Computed example of a mutant assay.
Amino acid sequence: MPTRTGKIHIEGNPERVFEFLSDPENLKRITPGAASVQGVSEGRFLLSKSSSPATSAFLRTDRSAKRLEWGTDDGGYSGWLEVTANGDGSDITVEITTREQVQGAAGVRSGDDKLKDGLELLRRHISLA
Rank of each mutant, 00 (worst) to 15 (best):
G104V: 11
I96H: 03
S110N: 09
E42K: 11
S78I: 00
P32C: 03
S127Y: 04
L122M: 03
A35M: 11
G89V: 04
K28Q: 09
R67F: 04
F18A: 00
S36A: 12
L46A: 05
Y77G: 00
G71T: 05
L21Y: 07
N26M: 03
G33A: 01
G6M: 06
H9R: 10
G104W: 10
V83G: 08
R123D: 11
T97V: 07
S56V: 12
D74C: 04
P2I: 09
K28A: 02
D88V: 03
L21D: 05
R124A: 09
I126F: 07
G39V: 01
I96P: 05
S41M: 00
F20T: 06
R63W: 05
E82H: 05
T61L: 09
D113H: 08
I10P: 06
K49D: 03
L119K: 09
G33Y: 05
I10L: 14
A129M: 12
R99I: 13
R44H: 06
G107W: 15
T5Y: 01
K114P: 01
Q101L: 10
G111Y: 13
S51H: 05
E82G: 07
V40M: 01
P32D: 09
G107K: 15
D74S: 06
P53S: 08
G75Q: 08
S90L: 04
E95A: 10
I30H: 12
E100Y: 08
P2R: 07
D62T: 04
D23E: 10
I92V: 05
I30L: 14
G111A: 14
N26K: 10
S50Y: 02
